[in-house]
Write a protein that binds this DNA or RNA. Structure first.
Lengths: 345, 345
DNA sequence: GTGAAAGCGCTAACAG
DNA sequence: CTGTTAGCGCTTTCAC
């Protein structure tokens, strides 16, 4: 049943050529006569030849494969980023291997090792919630394998990174809530160890200050931004003697769950409590009221990240020079935060 | 900067051993003295050795890699399945390569070829909307590389497959709607070429018949089950002279969008129109009213599929024998279809 | 318990 | 434009 594989030698023998010529022909080497090339390709097709990547990679020493290490697959944002990465890498002729850490640093470390052993030519990464350092990327740095981070990064380091201005986005959304007359604005977010969340927290605090509101530590909840976390945060709010009049959640899905739980317990949104999310996930347009959020262009982020890595690999540019790229993001105001009637007539 | 890689020869030389011994030691071959093994492993660590998969695979002739070809990544169901697959394959020591076709048969064909060339030891696949035949899997069949399909399959073929009883699930949901007093039950689904949708359609029709309702072809919409499709279907309903009093949508997300669009246009759910989805996506619990749906265990499906493939690869069982596995699914009734008050006191 | 030697399939000098 | 040759790094007989 399982007949042995066809190799270039088999093709060469059939056509009375050398293996080298067959190899060149299959790789569309221009040095080969067009007629010969066609004969080889036809014969390869006919014999059901498939090239042996292992032999080829072993010989060439590079894999034309890019590793993508993400913190989670179950996220609209991430799948958008992946689509962007895929578009660019496919066009450039690179394969990608996707690994995800499920937000756990242990798995991130294991994945980093695995991709290193798989000999990826370059790496694109977004860190897990609890990643504390970049030691597991050292093997890449040491071997000169380019690494570029996106979204979840260590800021203020020298490594190439593509991010949005989280500080600014959070500032905008918090200011918007303040402008709506909210006085007790809660912030539900994830580990402040991670740049995206710490920056948002800073933006939130600054906006409070600029709007003459005090920061109250009871108004900060950090959790996993999961479904359960959303329910729990809502419960916590319901139990408060002095409830907030607005909640800014760092993730649309969690915001939606939180909002729903509050509603199920008789809270009116946005009248009693305004709710805002982050990411412009599709879910924000389905819930009622529709969710105010930050639009955060995943596809574009993926494309830009991959483009930079590919350019580096192709020697067109150097990652070490372009070390930080900031992508635009935008506040989208919907009903979930509109306490006042829209002022425009 | 980029110092050359360490090989087993480098380790062998340092320890005055042969490369063969080093190789065996690294692979924990019991024939090797425990002391020698430790010396080798320590030295490997110290020198920063990483094994060369290409050389190893080239030599061994198998890759210990399983290809996973899915119709779409942006789906909660699929990411659950992937989690299940990953769990089982990781435990069994297999790597996986994930490829997705974005519901397009051209890309599915290209991916199948690609995975074939990557020499996966086995393949797990779920078909795209418009896949018409299994010709692109022929190379696998011919070479005796095991292929197992899940969810989106060609039914009534001899290939190994893991599915749910779509007929039954649709029958249940449609009957439930009929029991709620609905007389004009619409069905919004995707290409009837694909088993999952054709089976659901059959179940829907049979339930209508068994409940003495006529099937009206105006009450069938087939689309892509996307966000836009949901909006468009809702618009179509709004424009109907004789509107349905229930809609059974083949996907929760699309159902939610459709429901929301109807609501935005003054339709009361479930009073005017009941809405049911399929998949038990998290979104169903966020929307208002909460969505009636079919629970469809993604993780389990992934685990069972992978387990069967791995067992086959390890010679424990034979895929050719266990050719169809049906996983349980379950109707979950929520407010979006409750026209009558729950009858239980 | 360890070593010698061959070869997996391919590509890149080099030669002509 | 095509052929010869060597070798990528590993595993696996077959010896001893």
């Amino acid at each position: 049943m399982t007949q042995p594989d066809i190799t270039i030698y088999d093709i060469a023998k059939k056509l009375s050529l050398s293996a080298a010529t067959v190899s060149r022909a299959l790789n569309n080497n221009p040095a080969i006569n067009a007629k010969t090339r066609k004969r080889v390709n036809d014969m390869a097709m006919e014999m059901g030849y498939r090239s042996n990547n292992f032999a080829s990679n072993l010989r060439k020493g590079n894999t034309h494969t890019i590793g993508v290490l993400v913190h989670e697959l179950k996220s609209n944002f991430i799948t958008s980023v992946l689509a962007g990465i895929e578009k660019v890498t496919t066009e450039a002729g690179y394969d990608i291997i996707i690994a995800h850490s499920s937000e756990r640093k242990e798995k991130e470390i294991a994945n980093a090792h695995n991709l290193f052993h798989k000999r990826v030519d370059g790496l694109i990464a977004s860190l897990a919630f609890d990643t504390e350092n970049l030691d597991h990327f050292d093997p890449f740095f040491k071997k000169g394998i380019p690494v570029i981070f996106f979204d979840r990064v260590f800021e203020h380091t020298d490594f190439a990174q593509v991010i949005i201005n989280n500080y600014r986005a959070a500032y905008d959304i918090t200011s918007h809530l303040a402008k709506q007359g909210c006085k007790r604005i809660m912030h539900v977010t994830a580990s402040l160890e991670r740049n995206v969340y710490s920056e948002r927290f800073k933006g939130y605090q600054q906006a409070l200050k600029d709007n003459k509101l005090n920061y109250d530590k009871d108004l900060l909840i950090t959790n996993q931004l999961s479904e359960e976390a959303g329910i729990q945060a809502a419960m916590q709010i319901l139990a408060m003697r002095k409830r907030p009049d607005a909640v800014f959640v760092s993730n649309d899905f969690c915001a939606a769950v939180l909002m729903r739980t509050l509603q199920d317990n008789g809270v009116h949104i946005p009248k009693d409590i305004a709710v805002a999310g982050f990411n412009n996930d599709a879910v924000g347009k389905i819930v009622s009221p529709k969710l105010t959020t930050i639009d955060y262009p995943g596809i574009e982020m993926g494309e830009i990240t991959a483009r930079n890595l590919v350019n580096h690999l192709q020697g067109v540019s150097n990652l070490a020079l372009t070390n930080k790229i900031i992508i635009k993001s935008e506040l989208i105001i919907r009903e979930s935060t509109l306490k006042k009637k829209p002022s425009q007539k």
